[in-house]
Design a protein around this nucleic acid. Structure first.
Lengths: 209, 209, 209, 209
DNA sequence: CATGAATGAGTTTTCATTCAT
DNA sequence: GATGAATGAAAACTCATTCAT
């Protein structure tokens, strides 16, 4: 499943299409998709709205029927994909499994998200803590972080993790994982399953007691 | 030594000042400093040139005596600080020491650079692989990377490092280190010596055989 | 009678309503009413058509079934209310009465129109001689003026009015009257019957021989 | 003296001009003059900024070096001309003279202002109480009104004026005067000295005891 | 050399009007 | 007839860059 098909699943208008309209996609989704691609490549300020509208195949004015402003557009995008990432990781997460298993699931799902939705992954990385993100985006951002911090805390108490500052461990793991994924997507090495497994093995040794 | 004094040392025009100019700093340096602060906070496209000139205490036109264009300015900045980072790490690097010691020196110096020049560190992180970086910036960027890859290769042969893809190991280490430093600078935990040592310990366990 | 009910009387489609349409008012009238309110507050160029349609409770496209363009809409509105004002003053006007009596009727009816239909009064004041008024609107505008000029001419001949330029007298009276009414509607003083009578007394002294 | 020359007197750059620059006028003044003409003809919302810049003979961006926004521009214009009008009326006003004389001076000066600066007069009339006028403009507006109210109050006590509500008398006088001037400027009658004197005579009879 | 006013193409955004449903 | 999504030209405003002083 690629990013485009993922989005189409989100859209209700993709079903029961009667006409042979050349554009099968929801305009709102087309705009989000175009903005995702452009913002992840050129950044927020580096992307002009007409460029977005052109790539989305809609007129300049149309964007503003769907999103109040350029800022509202990035925020919608950020919330959509941050939520998608969280869901991707947490849906059916093995809450009762041993931590090693949980770590494995987390690592592999994060990686599979980056592989399935590389553009979205880049977008999220690039827009972390951007000043134009609103309160809601920031809350979405924190939710995942808190979840990870909680999990690490608990397993530190159980003597499974090193007894270092939890925020440090989280930063370490998150930095290592996203560093590896970014480098892999950039083509510095083939992002094969083996690579992801190797990186996971490294990271586990880094944090386990 | 703070960032400002560092820059002054870099500047050749600071010596033999004849006039009692009220501004003791080179205009070129003032511009670089202002641009560093602004670019690291607001990004390249988010920073207006008049803002740079204002913060630098020079007129808008003056910037163009020192830098051909906005792009030339970021690139000068990038090269300056990437080189400074490399020098900071490699000056008197213990090439003959055992790898564990070399790794320690690398880790600690990278960290001390981020602590001494947090703005420059943020700037470098933010502008990694930006499309407006020119060939020269990209070469500067690669120089450090190649050096690290070479070192890792050698010590992998010596069975000191895990026998995983070297690019993967480099990405892992670099990701973990910069993740930890960014989180620390952002205030998620106090960036004390202990934290840096703990992170180093984790990372060593991650990559050593 | 308020402005809304007045308009309903003007509308022919309000009779013989067959369906149980939830909106009892003619769409055309609803649009005119909405436009009246908005144009009188914000002016012609300051009022967006979508705003008019929203306030009228119809869709944006519907306005264009009733009025060819925004200009056609102001003109329809202007003619409607200018005519209403003329009718209000002239219906059953005492053509044979002495001029003092005629002046009294004119003054009082003009005032009562402003009090009954303040929004329409403001609208007419605001759009006097606007460049987007068409020929027909301008003719409607002139009709009242001519009538007044004729009356003044006649009574000047009869030595009842001062022997000044008639256009001057008309401008004086009309300016004084609308100045008083606007100030009263704005709340600078209570627009009571006494005020209107006092102003009439002043104005009579101003123009009578 | 026409409006243009009046403005030039306000500008400091008109003196000691060394070069034969084709544009002898201050850019700021040129913008104010262009905006005055356009706003008085087409209103605030009906005037596009590029039109202003074109008529002023400057580029679009230049306006924003002189005025923060379109609103700031109208307000600057309003304050400039309202103040000019007040000064025109009040400079050397015969405070100790009998009221009839004061009324005469007021009436004549107001009229001469409208004749010398017809565009500014129209502008002021058109923008009375506009919603985009800021606090400062509104205060400037009130100053003149208060002055007139005070004068009328005093002379009502002295039994020189009719004992009607002062605000009513003020509204009457102001309405009559501006009505006459607007009609005259529009060409409904020649705006000669005799006309202005006649109107003054009318108005005096209207308000005097 | 340095300035900073000026430029004009570019930015985000609005809005009168149309047209497929 | 009615809708309201879509359009695209034009609005207000910004900004990298130039150039006369």
């Amino acid at each position: 499943m690629n990013e485009r098909s993922f989005q189409e699943n989100q859209s209700h208008s993709s079903m029961a299409r009667k006409t042979d309209t050349p554009s099968p996609i929801d305009k709102g989704e087309a705009i989000l998709q175009a903005a995702l691609e452009l913002f992840s490549e050129r950044g927020f300020h580096g992307t002009a709205m007409p460029l977005v509208s052109e790539r989305a195949g809609v007129s300049a004015g149309t964007i503003y029927r769907y999103f109040e402003s350029k800022e509202a557009l990035v925020n919608a995008l950020y919330q959509k994909w941050k939520t998608a990432l969280l869901d991707h990781i947490l849906d059916g997460f093995p809450d009762q499994a041993p931590f090693r298993e949980q770590f494995h699931v987390f690592w592999q799902r994060y990686a599979s998200f980056a592989q399935e939705f590389p553009t979205a992954f880049q977008f999220l990385e690039l827009h972390h803590h951007s000043p134009y993100l609103d309160e809601r985006s920031r809350l979405t951002e924190q939710k995942g972080h808190q979840r990870m911090v909680g999990l690490f805390h608990e397993n530190q108490r159980l003597q499974i993790l090193k007894s270092f500052e939890v925020e440090l461990l989280v930063a370490f793991v998150w930095g290592a994982l996203s560093g590896v994924l970014k480098a892999g997507l950039k083509g510095e090495f083939p992002l094969t399953q083996k690579m992801i497994d190797d990186a996971e093995a490294c990271c586990w040794e880094a944090i386990r007691r």
